[in-house]
């Protein structure tokens, strides 16, 4: 607790310089790594960070546990890859299309939240993930079935291909992660994010605050789905080949593990969680066979000793007020009238 406070005070005080250092580090990273393999791992970490940020909106902030998020990743990956391969569409246009399709699927999956919650909802999401896999497998005329989609082109900007070799894919990943992170912060720090967290904490009390539970849950599903589709589109262009098994149940659990390990309901945790859980199997290839056993052990240990996740502490910093509000607070009189009544007083 005290340690957290000291650290947060330090970070808060040196925020600008730390951000600059981080930016310089991330920009220079591919040159420091100087290895296509390591850069590929870095892009993979970035892609999974996106997936975790997506699931975190739903599971971390809104409190709805999904076991089928690989389904949204698949929708994003398939839509964008097929548009690129079959229709020759540009990466960005096909990525956005993938997000739209996933968003619509998010509405569909969000609808049952009107009636079901908790474990039952998780089972529905599990079913959703499997259904998407089945569709990818059996709708051969469009998805190529079990053969999958081959030769997915690398994204290109103005005819310039973004690859691992020229680090273009890495920088594309950085930009997408940055935009998504800013988007998530903006959502969380607004009435939408507060409504999500209120629903997570207490649905009845939230209803009594006038929050439309159903529409916020659906919104949370949609945002989550769109972000995961974005991650899926990036991931597909990184690996260049996808088939229905690329997005199996293991992917759903991996994303969930990242969110839990990093710290549900924190944004910082997603980077740490993804870095650990994606880098770990790479550095421990010799452990290949036992990888999932180790995942299990890590998660059990986490649940036992740090259920809030590695980065899951509550901030000890004061709630951020804008300058404008601070000035108003200075002048406030505790006996001033409240003036909050909706209707004119009778």
């Amino acid at each position: 607790m005290n340690f957290v406070h000291t650290m947060e005070t330090f970070v808060e005080g040196k925020k600008k310089i730390l951000l600059i250092l981080l930016a310089v580090f991330l920009i220079a990273l591919p040159y420091m790594l100087n290895s296509q393999y390591l850069v590929t791992v870095a892009v993979k970490i970035g892609s999974y960070t996106l997936l975790a940020l997506g699931l975190n909106v739903l599971t971390g902030y809104t409190g709805l546990v999904s076991l089928g998020h690989a389904g949204f990743v698949a929708i994003g990956a398939y839509t964008s890859s097929l548009c690129a391969v079959k229709l020759g569409m540009n990466f960005f246009a096909s990525m956005i299309l993938g997000m739209v399709v996933a968003g619509l699927a998010g509405v569909l999956l969000g609808l049952p939240t009107m009636r079901v919650t908790g474990t039952y909802l998780s089972i529905i999401t599990l079913g959703f993930g499997e259904i998407i896999k089945m569709i990818a497998m059996n709708w051969s005329s469009v998805t190529n079935g079990t053969l999958g989609v081959k030769n997915i082109p690398r994204p290109s900007i103005f005819g310039y291909d973004l690859t691992i070799a020229n680090n273009g894919l890495y920088y594309l990943m950085l930009v997408l992660v940055l935009i998504t992170t800013l988007f998530c912060i903006a959502v969380v720090k607004s009435k939408t994010g507060r409504a999500f967290q209120a629903i997570r904490a207490d649905e009845l009390a939230s209803t009594m605050m006038g929050i439309n539970i159903t529409s916020y849950k659906i919104l949370s599903f949609v945002i989550s789905a769109c972000i995961c589709a974005l991650g899926g589109a990036l991931y597909a262009s990184l690996i260049g080949y996808i088939d229905p098994n690329t997005f199996n149940f293991d992917v759903s659990t991996l994303i969930l593990s990242i969110v839990i390990l990093g710290g549900m309901g924190t944004i910082r945790g997603m980077f740490v969680g993804a870095a650990i859980l994606i880098a770990f199997p790479e550095v421990s290839r010799f452990l290949m066979e036992y990888r999932f056993v180790l995942y299990g052990v890590i998660l059990v240990l986490m649940m036992r000793f740090r259920p809030q996740g590695i980065m899951g502490w509550k901030s000890t910093m004061p709630y951020r007020l804008s300058k404008n509000v601070k000035e108003q607070v200075e002048k406030m009189d505790k006996n001033a009238p409240l003036n909050l009544l909706n209707e004119t007083k009778g």
């Binding site: 009435k191 507060r194 967290q197 209120a198 904490a201 207490d202 009390a205 605050m209 929050i211 709630y319």
Partner: peptide, 13 residues
Amino acid sequence: LFSDLRVIENVLI
């Protein structure tokens, strides 16, 4: 209350 949120956040909700 929304017990894992701050006092001011509770009021804002």
